[in-house]
Design a binder for these strands. Structure first.
Length: 489
RNA sequence: CGGGGCGUAGCGUAGCCCGGUAUCGCGCCUGCUUUGGGAGCAGGAGGUCGUCAGUUCGAAUCUGGCCGCCCCGACCA
């Protein structure tokens, strides 16, 4: 195997950067901070999108699409929202260019917009401005809308998938007649994300609530799922916000209730982004390259014929055709790679590096023996199997890989999760990485101090697990329960 | 926005200190032999040395400006 990838142990960040580029997931574009998502990477996103979209539909949501441009004045209507996003907004000021002998084209100063337009960093404002017209009566509620879109946040420092100036995501925006309904929706969508992360991405996550300082700008409460990467750092994998009546009040979204009284509606919003691809990479991949869980692999099984000549290629094609058909009949995606410009060894390395979960090789030997060689990406094990009923075995193998990846990730998280009781212990533990469970007095001051002194933040106040009270590791003040500290992406 | 580094063929690089028109590997093209873990041999194509100016008979090399990107920090999903 060619030594083309930095080892995780040598430099985890470099390993990640190398992997994204060399596994052909994405590349840097000429536009600073923006990436080109290549077909292999976009294929993974399509799988995520399809699975999530089904889950959204199953929970009663519908898709719609709102504009990329947001009038500047909208952003200012909700005070904490504007404060949260103002620093990273791209602004459109003109609507026309004109040709210029010296510079090719220049902005036409005569074409200045009367009101500047913001490229959406998120769509709450334009959506709530629209909802005002949609919601008049309790009969119009709940409003359960999602959109798949791109957004722009002008980040100072970017990394492929993890933080780019433009990214793809989905944002759900719902309106409800009661507070309780909205809170239930927030929790329901958090649960959808958690199930998606665990069952599809094979990433174990902790459901929790953000502290005030980590809360979404404009939210009353932010729920999140937190995952642990192989280097022990935390990554927020999805958020679901209970927005209270903040946006309804800012945009005058009122409805008439059954008692014929006017009320502001209650809101939620929730989203996950292409950042999940980064999470996927950093959870499962190894020094040999990308590892994809079968449920998200654009192609689950790569079939590599080993042929000396055209006749042999044709007989392999005939030999394997029933198997390919049987696999496809089971809904398994298969690629039969009969490209004769590349050698089998090259293909093995390539499919391994790009994370195809299962590889089948067939050569003359197999045709004589009625076998195929089956290799699994997660463990790199190879096994010669009878070709008879191989489709059932592959289907089983794919589930086994999916499960194995989840269990490995869970074991890692458990190994790097521990409780500490004193700040001194904490300072040692945080250097070793992972999740630290510790008591916190609930004040932003203590949280800030820990952050400044150790670079660790409170990832969340977990919704599950140990709820026993104690004393804050820093101040000794009473604490309801342990929270999760970690260094984060 | 601070600190560090880098711009030479599609990619990775040597050359720069000590000026004389660019090295090597991968990839690409052609042919033959190969094909069960990134094939071998032979031949070939491919370059405004980031950019602008200066010094010089002559600049990838020296000087100055500009541009871009990457990495580390602060900020964030």
């Amino acid at each position: 195997m060619a030594d083309i990838l930095t080892k995780r142990a040598d430099d985890y960040a470099q390993w990640y950067n190398d992997l994204v580029l060399k596994a052909d997931l994405a590349e840097h574009s000429d536009v600073r901070g923006c990436m080109v998502i290549k077909p292999h990477g976009y294929g993974v996103w399509e799988k995520m999108r399809d699975a999530l979209d089904r889950m959204f539909k199953d929970t009663g949501h519908v898709n719609a699409y709102f504009p990329l441009f947001i009038p500047k004045s909208y952003l200012a209507k909700e005070a904490s929202h504007v404060e949260g996003f103002a620093k990273e907004c791209a602004v459109v000021t003109h609507y026309r260019l004109k040709s210029d002998p010296e510079h090719g084209v220049v902005v036409d100063p005569a074409a200045k917009l009367e009101e500047e337009l913001i490229i959406r960093p998120t769509s709450e404002t334009i959506i709530w401005n629209t909802y005002r017209g949609w919601v008049k009566s309790y009969r119009d509620l709940p409003l359960l809308v999602n959109q798949w879109a791109n957004v722009v946040r002008w980040e100072m420092r970017t990394r492929l998938f993890l933080r780019t100036a433009e990214f793809l995501w989905q944002e759900g925006h719902t309106a409800h007649a009661t507070e309780q309904e909205a809170v239930e929706e927030t929790e329901r969508m958090l649960d959808v994300y958690a199930r998606f992360a665990e069952e599809w991405l094979a990433i174990p996550v902790i459901r929790g609530v953000k502290t005030a300082s980590e809360r979404f700008a404009g939210a009353v409460e932010t729920y999140c799922i937190e995952a642990m990467m192989q280097d022990g750092k935390a990554l927020q994998a999805g958020t679901s916000h209970f927005l209270g009546q903040n946006f309804a009040k800012a945009f005058d979204v009122l409805f008439t209730n059954k008692e014929n009284k006017q009320e502001h509606v209650w809101a939620t919003s929730w989203g996950v982004s292409t950042r999940l691809i980064g999470a996927l990479i950093m959870t499962h991949s190894d020094d040999q390259g990308l590892v994809l869980p079968p449920k998200l692999a654009p192609v689950q099984v790569a079939v590599v014929p080993i042929a000396k000549n055209t006749e042999q290629m044709e007989s392999i094609r005939t030999y394997i055709a029933p198997t390919l058909a049987a696999l496809r009949a089971r809904g398994i995606t298969v690629k039969f790679d009969d490209d004769d410009t590349k050698k089998p060894g090259w293909k093995f390395a390539e499919y391994e590096f790009k994370g195809y979960p299962v590889r089948i090789a067939i050569g003359p030997r197999d045709m004589e023996n009625g076998t195929v060689e089956v290799a699994r990406r997660d463990t790199l094990e190879k096994q010669v199997m009878a070709v008879t009923d191989i489709d059932a075995k592959i289907e089983h193998l794919l589930s086994a890989i999916q499960e194995n990846l989840f269990q490995k990730a869970l074991a890692l998280r458990e190994r790097y999760t521990r409780a500490v009781d004193t700040y001194d212990e904490f300072k040692v533990a945080i250097e070793e990485g992972g999740f630290i469970l510790a008591h916190w007095d609930g004040t932003p001051e203590t949280e800030e101090r820990v952050k400044n002194e150790t670079k660790a933040t409170i990832r969340c106040i977990p919704l599950e697990g140990d709820r026993s009270p104690g004393r804050c590791m820093v101040t000794g003040a009473p604490s309801d329960r342990r929270v999760i500290f970690a260094r984060a992406y």
